[in-house]
């Protein structure tokens, strides 16, 4: 009886340990992907348009707020616009081509994939900087 209990505790703690390990690995993997790395403009900047930890939690409020102002009233402040996010956070590959922010491991996908929340922005909005999408046409 006691030995069975003992074994059970052992198994459970092992499972917990494995679980914790997995989380730790996933966490180092996930946040913001290769977000502020190398060829993204954001790499050269000290912080985002607001303090970074505020942005992590609230970027969607900012984007949604300006979205209504832009569509309804024509207010297109560059700083808080989605276009500015993409301009700043899209990386460029070795050939200088922009990598979509929704590609695996890139800025938007990195976190959103981790938390399994699909941003619906990109059903309509461009995933590469404006300079690149003009060239596409």
């Amino acid at each position: 009886m006691t030995s069975t209990l003992h074994r059970l505790v052992k198994v459970v703690s092992l499972a917990l340990l494995v679980g914790l390990g997995a989380t730790a690995i996933a966490e180092t993997d996930a946040p913001a992907g290769k977000a502020v790395e190398g060829s993204a403009k954001a790499n050269a900047l000290k912080s985002c348009v607001r303090p970074t930890d505020w942005m992590r939690r609230n970027h969607m409020e900012l984007i949604e707020h300006q979205r209504d102002l832009t569509v309804r009233q024509g207010v297109r402040v560059q700083k808080d616009s989605l276009a500015n996010c993409i301009d700043c956070h899209a990386r460029h590959d070795d050939k200088g081509q922009p990598v979509p922010v929704t590609a695996k491991g890139e800025f938007c996908q990195g976190c959103h994939g981790f938390v399994a929340a699909k941003p619906s922005c990109f059903q309509c909005h461009s995933t590469v900087p404006s300079s690149a999408d003009t060239a596409q046409r």
Partner: peptide, 28 residues
């Protein structure tokens, strides 16, 4: 589905759209 989504004119499947007098130009 729309493959090329211009930054100037975001658009996607499932919505209705029409001429907007090049609103992005006017705003700029």
């Amino acid at each position: 589905d729309i493959e090329i989504k211009p930054t100037n004119a975001p658009r996607g499947k499932g919505c209705v759209e029409s001429c907007n007098l090049c609103v992005h130009r006017l705003d700029n």
